[in-house]
């Protein structure tokens, strides 16, 4: 595996006339949990969507596993895509499939044909996200918000990805559920040796999960380092984001949990 699963060099993006990103340089080291933070509208999710190829940057270069995302033959592109999994903010489960088929879908597409093995694989993924086997029969519409996220995570993990991208993993979960979900991602990260990139607003999640933090502001990466490094950077945005009274309390809670 390359040392940097995701590398961005001078990535710039604009919507209409407005530049969202102006030359972003970022190299995500393998095995780390990197959190992208920034004010709303700073283009965090845009950046994440560019990494999986849903959007293309207007300028600059984006490498995934050491190669540009859209390079090589169709087969190679497909193989590259199957090395990462993405958890969408609202789960993006296929509402016409039940939970079992949602998780089995990428495996079937990949070519797993043995139904017995497929069943075991799906149940194993469900167990990994701490869900009961009975959940497999339910439709996405019958799941609670926390369960949707877990099933979506199981689906993202179906193809044994090396890189996991999480868009607001704890948004819309109550503090209890969100702490449990964070613990789940942490244990999976340790067990599977994944590289994780997440976008979050939630400082609790950030403090408990991230080993590195990248701060996006005014279209650039303002700072990239461990949370302690970031806290020592003198900058008005970081000041406001991390040093408010509420933020301090959240960080203390998160680090205590970690």
């Amino acid at each position: 595996m390359s040392a940097f699963p995701v590398e961005l060099k001078g990535v710039s993006t604009r919507f209409g006339r407005q530049w969202v990103h102006k030359g972003i340089d970022l190299a995500v080291p393998a095995g780390e949990v990197v959190a992208l933070v920034g004010g709303s509208g700073s283009g965090k999710t845009t950046l994440l969507r560019q990494m999986v190829g849903l959007l293309t940057p207007d300028e600059g270069e984006l490498r995934v596993f050491g190669e540009p995302l859209f390079s090589g033959s169709r087969q190679m592109q497909l193989a590259r895509r199957r090395r990462f999994g993405m958890l969408f903010q609202h789960g993006a489960l296929f509402s016409a499939f039940n939970v079992f088929d949602n998780i089995a879908f990428p495996l079937r597409e990949f070519g797993v044909v043995d139904e017995g093995l497929l069943r075991d694989l799906v149940l194993l993924k469900l167990a990994m996200v701490e869900l009961e086997p009975e959940v497999a029969r339910r439709m996405p519409a019958e799941l609670s918000g926390g369960m949707v996220k877990r099933v979506a995570l199981a689906r993202a993990l179906a193809l044994e990805p090396e890189l996991l991208l999480l868009d607001e993993p704890t948004a819309g979960l109550d503090p209890d559920l969100s702490a449990a979900f964070v613990a789940l991602i942490r244990s999976l990260h340790q067990a599977l040796g994944l590289t994780v990139i997440l976008v979050t607003h939630d400082l609790d999640t950030l403090a408990a999960l991230a080993t590195r933090v990248a701060v996006l502001s005014a279209g650039r990466i303002l700072a990239f380092g461990t949370l302690d490094d970031i806290m020592n950077v003198q900058d008005p945005f970081i000041e406001r984001f991390f040093h408010g009274i509420r933020s301090q309390a959240a960080l203390a809670r998160g680090q205590g949990a970690g």
Partner: peptide, 15 residues
């Protein structure tokens, strides 16, 4: 060991 342990923990006739 942990990888195999996860497979082991899987009930045979769960579904």
């Amino acid at each position: 060991e942990p990888v195999l342990a996860r497979a082991e923990a899987l009930p045979a006739d769960a579904l």
